[in-house]
C-alpha cells in the first residue's frame, strides 16, 4: 500500500512534467500527421497502398520509440533527484516507510507513467492505421479509382495485430531503459546519467555489432568470449526493434505473440534486476 501510494503520486507528478507532455503531444501530433505521408516520401519501390502503410507503420513505431526513449531517460534521470530537490524524500523516509518501499514505488511509478504515455501514443498510432486502412479499402472498392491506381492496389487488412505487438515491444524497452536509468540515478548526477542512459540504449541497440565483433575471424578467443558474454548480459534493445517482422506478417517466422511474451519476460526480469540492485544501493545510501 505504501508502494502503491508512492507510485501513484509519482505518476501524477511525472505526467505533469511539461517536457514530458511536450514529447507526448508532439509524438501524437506527428503520428496523426503521418496520415498524409504517401509513397512520394517513401524510398521504397512503388507498391501502392502497402508501401504507404509500411512508411506509416515504420514512422509510427519509430516516433513512439524515439519519444518514449526520451521520456524514459527524462523520467529515470529526474524522478529520484527531484525528490531530493524538493526535500520530499526526507519527509517520506522520516515516516515509517522502508527504503525499499520508496525505491519500488518510484520504479513502479515510472513504469506506469511510461505505460500511460505509450498507451496514449499507441492508441493514436493504431487508430491512425485503422483510419488509413479504411480509407484505402474505400479507395480500392471504387472501381474507377481502383483502375486508375492500377493493379498495385492491394487489399489491406483493417486491423493488424502485429502493431499491437509492436506497441508492446516498444513499451517493454522503455521499461527496461527507465529502470536502468533509475538505478543509475542513485549513483550519477543527472547530466552524466542522461548520457549514460543514452549510451546504454545505443550499445544495446547495436549489440549485433558487438556480436559480430566477437565473431570476427582471427579474433582473440578470450576477446570473443568476452564479447559473447557481453551480448548475453547487455540489455538487448535490438530485440525489441524488429520492424521487418512486424511489417511483414506474411513472412511469419515466429509466433509474434509468443515472441512478445518472451520479450516481456526478458524485460520484466531486467527491470527486476535493476530494481533489486537499486534497493541494495539505496539501502546504504545517505540521503
Amino acid at each position: 500500500m505504501i508502494i502503491w501510494a508512492i507510485a501513484r503520486t509519482t505518476v501524477g507528478d511525472a505526467l505533469r512534467k511539461k517536457i514530458l507532455q511536450v514529447f507526448i503531444v508532439v509524438a501524437i501530433g506527428l503520428i496523426v500527421l503521418s496520415l498524409s505521408f504517401s509513397q512520394t516520401l517513401s524510398f521504397s519501390s512503388q507498391r501502392g497502398a502497402s508501401s504507404d502503410f509500411m512508411l506509416l507503420k515504420s514512422f509510427g513505431l519509430g516516433m513512439m520509440a524515439l519519444a518514449g526513449i526520451f521520456i524514459s531517460l527524462i523520467l529515470g534521470v529526474t524522478l529520484i533527484p527531484q525528490e531530493f530537490e524538493r526535500r520530499t524524500i526526507y519527509t517520506i523516509l522520516a515516516k515509517p516507510v522502508k527504503r525499499y518501499e520508496f525505491i519500488t514505488g518510484k520504479f513502479l511509478g515510472a513504469i506506469l507513467t511510461l505505460g500511460i504515455a505509450t498507451g496514449l501514443m499507441g492508441i493514436t498510432f493504431i487508430l491512425t492505421i485503422v483510419i488509413k486502412a479504411i480509407g484505402a479499402q474505400q479507395l480500392s472498392a471504387s472501381p474507377t479509382l481502383g483502375q486508375m491506381l492500377g493493379s498495385t492496389t492491394e487489399k489491406v487488412a483493417i486491423f493488424d495485430w502485429n502493431m499491437v505487438w509492436g506497441v508492446i515491444l516498444v513499451y517493454l524497452q522503455f521499461m527496461v531503459l527507465s529502470s536502468i536509468v533509475l538505478l543509475f540515478s542513485l549513483i550519477f548526477t543527472q547530466t552524466v546519467n542522461f548520457f549514460m542512459g543514452a549510451a546504454v540504449y545505443a550499445v544495446g541497440f547495436m549489440s549485433t555489432v558487438v556480436i559480430s565483433l566477437g565473431g570476427a575471424e582471427g579474433a582473440n578467443v578470450a576477446l570473443q568470449l568476452f564479447y559473447k558474454t557481453i551480448s548475453y548480459v547487455l540489455p538487448r534493445f535490438d530485440q525489441f526493434n524488429i520492424p521487418n517482422q512486424l511489417l511483414h506478417p506474411e513472412t511469419q517466422v515466429t509466433n509474434m505473440g509468443a515472441y512478445t511474451g518472451m520479450m516481456a519476460l526478458y524485460g520484466l526480469l531486467y527491470t527486476l534486476l535493476a530494481l533489486v540492485a537499486a534497493i541494495l544501493i539505496f539501502e546504504r545510501k545517505e540521503v
Partner: peptide, 23 residues
C-alpha cells in the same frame, strides 16, 4: 527473415529500418 523478405518482396526497403532512424 529480413533476407527472405528481400528475396520474396523485392523493393520493400522500409522493412529493415527501425523507425527511430527514419524519425
Amino acid at each position: 527473415a529480413g533476407k527472405q523478405i528481400g528475396e520474396n518482396k523485392s523493393g520493400d526497403m522500409m522493412a529493415e529500418l527501425p523507425g527511430q532512424f527514419i524519425v
